[in-house]
């Protein structure tokens, strides 16, 4: 794989957020958000437990450099244990990514509440350093 010029590398990060973890779900716009050094895409989930390993892996196989799942803090899930289930699935998916050398760090979960669009963008920005170390997703340009 050719090493990309890191100075021009803008990681693409998909932020999947539980709509109960954000302060104003009706006002938060899903879609692309650009900021300095990051190309983010926000998508809402009815609960973080709605994620499946297959969805997360498809997002990465389709070229995303990183995925952040924003879940409710423990004890705040409206479905009792949805956030705990999400965390288990994410840990399992991270192990799968690791086993093929893609890097478990491409996928993370953050548990917070009353998140705003600015907070979600901040979660994506927090991943920049790690993702730059991992380098661009080799699947970029190979989307099928």
């Amino acid at each position: 794989m050719e090493k990309a010029d890191q100075s021009e590398y803008t990681p693409r990060i998909v932020v999947l957020y539980c709509h109960n973890a954000v302060s104003s779900p009706a006002e938060l716009r899903e879609g692309s958000y650009q900021s300095k050094g990051v190309d983010a895409y926000f998508a809402a989930l009815p609960c973080s437990s709605k994620i499946e390993s297959s969805y997360l892996l498809k997002i990465i196989a389709d070229g995303a450099d990183g995925v952040v799942v924003a879940a409710c803090p423990e004890g705040h899930c409206q479905f009792m244990v949805g956030n705990c289930r999400a965390e288990k699935r994410i840990n399992y998916t991270r192990s799968l990514l690791d086993s093929i050398g893609m890097g478990a760090e491409r996928l993370t979960i953050e548990k917070e509440k009353d998140l705003t669009a600015k907070d979600l963008l901040e979660l994506a920005l927090n991943r920049l350093e790690t993702l730059k170390i991992l380098g661009p997703n080799p699947m970029r340009g190979a989307e099928k």
């Binding site: 892996l57 093929i100 699947m139």
Partner: peptide, 24 residues
């Protein structure tokens, strides 16, 4: 079906990483 849909993107990524383009 769940595991099939999980394995497919993993194989695509793993093979691409090794330099093999594959349709799964």
């Amino acid at each position: 079906e769940r595991e099939v849909e999980t394995l497919a993107p993993l194989l695509r990524m793993a093979l691409k990483k090794e330099g093999y383009d594959v349709t799964v």
